[in-house]
Amino acid sequence: MSWTHEFKDALKTREDLSEFFETDFPEIKFPLFIPKVFAAKILMAGPDSPLWKQFLPHSEEDSNLGRLDPIGDKVHAKNNQLIHRYENRVLFTPTTVCPVLCRYCFRKNELSEKDEIFDQKFKEAIAYLTVNPEINEVIFTGGDPFILSNEKLALYIQEFSEVESIKYIRFHTRTPVILPSRIDEGLLAVLTSASALFKRCMVMIHVNHVSELTEDVRDAIALLNENHIEVFSQSVLLKGVNDTTEDLYNLFSELADLKVKPYYLHHPDEARGAMHFYMGLEEGRRIFAPLHNKLPGWALPQYIIDIPGGEGKTSAFNPESFEFNGSLINRNGEKVKIN
């Protein structure tokens, strides 16, 4: 079965979910989407599993707690498919479509509303990069860029390669985990071509728990490695999903064995509709700290937090104290009070 068929053959309504999982789910305001091939893995894992908790709807999603735009995407959006938060790099938003809808997603409000940051204005994006030569990296985000066709991806890559200042290209994706069949010959050819056009081409896989690394996912990662594609990972610390040192150790050590560099562990964002996954910084620090003693530095990701309001990422770990005093240093080196 092709990845496009698997993608189309998805559960998209509460009724679909109830029939497939033979249980009732709450009616929520956010959309639903789970390919059946992945839903079968969730069903096998069961209701108490990290898979079930990450992808199946919860009544607390309708809570008004949290922020609509927790990391300040709209503060730095340029109305041309680009979000320019850091001097040397931009996020590029070519699609609102994902291979699955994660219940904890920090962009779940923007994606469900088809926010204007996803408007297709590619010519304006290229023009912006051309007049801002300090930008040397384009990061494909979304949505999920690997849901685009190979032809569309190749077009974007070629256009970015013709901007003289762009040296690096990066793809943030959950597709190798949710639809590993997407890592096919066509996509590998596109990524190999990108590696020749830029100084570095990197794939950043989003994975939160070792149970997501099933045999077909491992095979997809192996294909990326065999084709000399640099593979990194990013994960989110989530209450009830991977909120123990053992959970994180198992995930990062397994990724390292698969030749995937654990890059980021995100502290959960205060996203509206996802606050049941949230935890305080002190709790997160206590979970993360023992990993320094259990993993080599090259297998230990940066534990980071996106400061609300668009202030940027900063280290979530403080070697001086587990306690949090309410202030963080933003991307410009300024102290920002966040609660």
Rank of each mutant, 00 (worst) to 15 (best):
G333W: 08
K239N: 15
F92A: 11
E246M: 11
H267R: 01
V231G: 00
V163W: 10
L291W: 04
Y263Q: 09
H206S: 14
E134M: 07
K78S: 06
R331C: 00
T214N: 07
L255W: 04
H206Q: 15
S59A: 13
K335H: 00
I169G: 05
L213G: 11
A196V: 00
N332Y: 07
D62I: 10
G309E: 05
L91R: 03
E61I: 07
G142Y: 05
Y249F: 15
L248H: 00
N132C: 07
H276E: 05
I221P: 09
W52Y: 14
F25H: 08
S149N: 04
V190W: 10
P180K: 15
C201T: 15
V177R: 02
F198Q: 12
H292L: 03
F20A: 02
S149W: 04
D48H: 12
E15Y: 13
R174C: 04
I305W: 06
S193E: 12
G333L: 08
F324C: 06
H172A: 14
S63L: 08
E185Q: 15
I329L: 01
R170W: 11
D73I: 02
I157M: 02
F55M: 03
F30N: 05
L191H: 07
T175N: 06
N332K: 05
H209F: 15
L248V: 01
L82Y: 10
I205D: 01
D184F: 03
G46E: 03
D247T: 09
M1L: 10
G240L: 07
L197M: 07
A39T: 11
V177I: 15
L111S: 04
F198W: 14
T244C: 13
P57V: 12
N79D: 14
P268V: 02
L295Q: 12
P296S: 00
I42A: 05
A39D: 10
L153Q: 02
E334C: 08
P268N: 03
E113S: 15
P290E: 09
G66Q: 08
P296V: 02
S235D: 09
P47V: 09
E6R: 07
L248R: 00
V217N: 06
E113G: 06
F55E: 00
E283N: 12
K261P: 01
S253R: 13
R272Y: 00
G284N: 11
L179D: 00
A274H: 08
H172N: 14
L237I: 05
N136L: 02
L223V: 06
V90C: 13
P145L: 11
D16A: 10
D144C: 03
I166K: 01
V138K: 10
R272S: 00
R170F: 10
P57Y: 10
L51C: 04
A274W: 11
P308C: 03
E6S: 13
P50L: 04
N330G: 09
V210H: 11
Q302W: 02
H172I: 02
N242C: 03
D48T: 08
E164A: 14
L148C: 10
T4S: 13
P262Y: 11
S233C: 10
E22I: 12
V207D: 08
P35C: 03
F106T: 08
L188D: 03
A220Y: 07
F252L: 06
G72F: 12
L248T: 01
E212I: 15
N339D: 10
I157D: 01
L148R: 04
S233A: 12
E137V: 01
H228D: 14
D216V: 14
A77T: 10
M204H: 11
F146L: 12
